[in-house]
Design a protein around this nucleic acid. Structure first.
Lengths: 205, 205
DNA sequence: CGCTAGCAAGACAGACCTGTTTGTCAATAT
DNA sequence: ATATTGACAAACAGGTCTGTCTTGCTAGCG
């Protein structure tokens, strides 16, 4: 349960959007990459800065020269990983052929590819909020701006369909979050298709 | 983010199903209640056993006499809180008038009441899994048996409707988990109704 | 060569963690 | 009245945490 983070954890390949496993040049990039991997795979609270420094090949003093505190490093990881994920998602979505309905449904096929990654660890923002359910207003704020990007896209698709943007966006947020969490808990990507089924029925209504 | 647990955190009232805030008699019950509150509100890793012992009014030695380790205490909390939640949910569901469809949709109204609790902290199992996304097979197993209870109920309702039980159950799991997480991240119970909308469309299909 | 700047390595402080142990006290049972 | 049980209080051991600071190496440059 609360096991210490192993010294040399899963290095395996990752989805092409993540900074994990990519060759990183500067010390700052290496630190950020190592922090992302360790935080996301083993949790924020249970990962120590010593482990991050060791895995990144940087000294702890270098880490603290680039990031004022562990909390700031966590924030940087969340922002970087969130931006990378959104860029990957929207790139994939722009390749979907068809109108807004096809794009909205295609979203779940993209998610399924994400879930199928052997190192899939869920949404870092959801994980961060789950670590401190009650307090942690800063993380909630970061997650809010992350989700706002997704909401904007969802609303624009709903508008193209001539449907209520807020209502559609909320339903899709539920379906997306639900698929993310169910796939994480069970390690089964099938829930992406279950979410797609529900989305299809909802849009056909 | 990783703030220490305050010495005297939110004591406020809770949903009637939870052990939190209820007068507890034996030392074991007091420890379990304090552990549930602190773990669920502030996270499992960031809550120390000293804090739990202090809040429960019990000595640490007493805590370790009843629970072999912190991990075992976490397991006991998950099992107790899960059982209490299921008992509450199924009691509420049994009061819903109408057939299986009304019960399946009424589930989201019950969830909305849960989300509206000012101390709502999400699903302890989801939170526990999110704390250590990759490892933590024991927690995943506990969450699996918890969710199995829900799946059994969902499947039986689907069978009564003459629909594919596994398919319906998976869709509803996505909707339930999604509503739980979205409500937790935004503190807005409205997502229960969004999930209900999607469920209605799916069942009408 | 000599100098400097940057970084790795590691010691360190102060706090917190889990889990154990010892001693004391009160209530109960025999 | 004595023995037993249960619980509290407190200290302790051994380890980890974050964050700071010092030391020494090395690479680049005049």
């Amino acid at each position: 349960m609360l096991d210490r983070v192993p010294t040399n954890p899963a290095p395996g390949p990752r989805s092409d959007w993540s900074t994990i496993g990519r060759p990183a040049r500067s010390a700052r990039e290496r630190i950020l990459a190592a922090a992302t991997e360790l935080f996301c795979l083993h949790g924020f609270a249970t990962t120590g800065v010593d482990t991050i420094a060791a895995q990144s090949g940087a000294a702890k003093s270098t880490l603290y020269k680039h990031f004022a505190s562990k909390d700031k490093l966590i924030e940087a990881v969340l922002e970087a990983e969130g931006a990378a994920w959104r860029a990957w998602l929207f790139t994939r979505l722009s390749a979907v052929e068809g109108g807004p309905q096809a794009r909205l449904l295609g979203l779940f096929d993209v998610l399924e590819d994400w879930f199928a990654d052997e190192n899939y660890y869920g949404c870092p923002y959801i994980n961060a909020i789950s670590e401190a359910p009650q307090v942690d207003e800063r993380t909630r704020c970061l997650a809010g701006t992350h989700k706002a990007h997704l909401l904007t896209w969802l609303r624009s698709q709903a508008l193209e369909l001539g449907r209520d943007p807020d209502e559609v966006a909320r339903v899709f947020v539920v379906l997306i979050d639900g698929a993310i969490v169910a796939a994480q808990a069970t390690r089964d990507p099938i829930f992406a298709q279950s979410a797609r089924d529900a989305a299809e029925a909802y849009l056909a209504q």
